[in-house]
Write a protein that binds this DNA or RNA. Sequence first.
DNA 1: GCCAACGTTGGC
DNA 2: GCCAACGTTGGC
Length: 154
Amino acid sequence: MAYWLMKSEPDVFGIDHLAARPNQTEPWDGVRNYQARNMMRDEMRVGDQVMFYHSNTEEPGIVGIMEVARAAYPDPTAFDPEAKYYDPKSDPDDPRWFMVDVRYVRHLRRNIPLTELKQYADGPLAGLPLVRKGNRLSVLPVTPEQWDFILGLE
DNA sequence: GCCAACGTTGGC
DNA sequence: GCCAACGTTGGC
């Protein structure tokens, strides 16, 4: 089993939205970055654990845990001209964009803000893309050691 | 709202 | 294949 972190803007879709969904499960659609797609499509497995990160908000940080509920399948919003993430170059016969389904596991007992995580950028969290300046990747791998360390901050 | 960092596009 | 222009992300 592998560990991941995925970002979302809580004003658009936050962890409380996920927890309120039927089966507490939701397709993680709209990823339009090749590196993020490749990880979802090629590496994510059902049961993988994922940290839910709130970006573009008052206090960005990790707020909870979810898990992969369904492995990668084509993202239908890419085919829908009405959808925000429509991509006319994604051919239904050869889809360009993929998504996984995620299921809510739990909130953290407290949110762990990015500012706090950055304190360990040269130590236990060295190599975690999240704490590197200018990182924009919305799906990123977390090592077991990083995972345990972060949850130890909870 | 600003802007640095980064990814993508498209002309050449 | 290069790289300038552009659009987006996301912290602050």
